[in-house]
Simulated scan of single mutants.
Amino acid sequence: MVRMGDVWDRTTDVLSGRGRTLAGIAALAIFLPGVVRTAYSLYVGKDTPATALLGGLIAIIASLAAVWCQLTLIALSTDPATTEPQAGAVGRARLLPTIGVGLLIGIVFGLFLLPIFIALVGAGWSPEAMQAGQMPTLSSGQAGFIGLYGLLYAILALWVAARLALWTAVMVNERLGIGAIRRSFALTRGITWRIIGVFVLYLVVLGISFSAARAVTGVVFGLILGIGAKATVGFLAAVAGGAVAAAFSTVAAVFTAQLYVATRVGPAASAGTPFDV
């Protein structure tokens, strides 16, 4: 039986032993690109097609770096014998397959949201109306449908997300593509509700820490720099939030790796070679 307490203990062991290396990778591949993206958005903006195009390119590069970072951190955290260059190579080798499977998962999640969008369009919603601040007028039936469907969707999405908790670890450690989805479902069988509990706790702590970091930094630098430095204060607050997000992303990657190790040696284990890229 997989015990989350044991997984967390192994997570803290990895963070203690390899924390500096993991933090360095996260700083370069998650935090720094995020800072550049925020600075560009605040100080350059998207006033022309050229600046908008460059902003989009920066966003894509930052997203690719973040995915590579997660894969690399998982590789480093799964096997203590793995070196940093080896983990980086695994991250590069599994980057495109991971993006492909991730897009497929996102499309499926999006398709199940279509009934809500159809109901909103039927009530007069449109992107132009939303930009103008105009909210659609919903009938009682439409509001009830959207509320009930949204609740069921949230519950189902949380359950599916828990069953998919290990798909990235599978992508790193086993030569699988779409099969990583089925493999993750197999590995998480019997521990779904425990994973959901970890998810909820993680999101609550992340949300509180992220908001607090941004709020405190914004207040402090707002008082120091004054009302005329609104953009700079916003940038510094975003940097503080980015640091918190990078730290939590590192912890999540290590925890995912250790949960994969714990489930892989259990009843759900199957033939698969770690880092078989």
Score class of each variant (00 low, 15 high):
T72P: 11
L73I: 08
L73Y: 04
A75W: 05
A75D: 11
A75E: 06
L76T: 08
S77F: 07
S77R: 10
T78H: 10
T78S: 10
T78F: 12
D79K: 11
D79V: 08
D79M: 09
D79T: 04
P80I: 07
P80M: 03
P80Y: 11
A81D: 14
A81K: 12
T82E: 06
T82L: 14
T83L: 06
E84I: 07
E84D: 00
E84S: 05
P85Y: 12
A87Q: 06
A87Y: 09
R92W: 13
R92Y: 01
A93G: 07
L95M: 04
L96S: 02
I99G: 02
G100S: 03
G100K: 14
G100H: 06
G100N: 08
V101P: 04
V101R: 06
G102T: 06
G102L: 06
L104E: 10
I105W: 11
I105Q: 13
G106L: 10
I107E: 07
F109C: 11
F109P: 04
L111V: 15
L111P: 09
L111K: 08
L111W: 08
F112K: 04
F112E: 03
L113P: 00
L113Q: 10
L113M: 09
P115V: 01
P115R: 09
I116M: 15
I118E: 05
I118G: 03
A119Y: 00
A119Q: 00
L120F: 09
V121M: 12
V121E: 13
V121N: 08
G122S: 11
G124D: 05
S126N: 12
S126F: 05
E128L: 03
E128M: 09
E128D: 12
A129P: 05
M130F: 14
M130Q: 13
Q131T: 07
Q131K: 14
Q131H: 12
A132V: 07
A132I: 07
A132K: 13
A132H: 08
G133R: 10
Q134H: 15
M135P: 01
M135Y: 05
M135G: 01
M135N: 13
P136W: 02
P136C: 03
P136E: 01
L138G: 06
L138I: 12
S139V: 09
S139P: 07
S140T: 14
S140W: 08
G141H: 01
G141S: 06
Q142E: 14
Q142I: 02
A143H: 11
A143D: 02
G144S: 10
F145V: 00
F145I: 00
I146G: 04
G147P: 04
G147T: 04
G147Y: 00
L148W: 08
L148V: 15
Y149F: 15
Y149V: 00
G150V: 00
L151K: 02
L151A: 15
L152G: 10
L152N: 00
A154M: 02
A154Q: 01
A154H: 03
A154I: 05
I155W: 04
I155S: 06
I155D: 02
L156I: 15
L156K: 10
A157E: 13
A157P: 08
L158K: 03
L158N: 02
V160L: 15
V160R: 02
V160Q: 10
V160N: 05
A161K: 12
A161R: 14
R163P: 13
R163A: 12
R163Y: 11
L164N: 13
L164F: 15
L164D: 13
A165F: 15
A165H: 14
A165V: 01
A165T: 09
L166C: 12
W167E: 07
W167T: 10
W167D: 05
W167I: 11
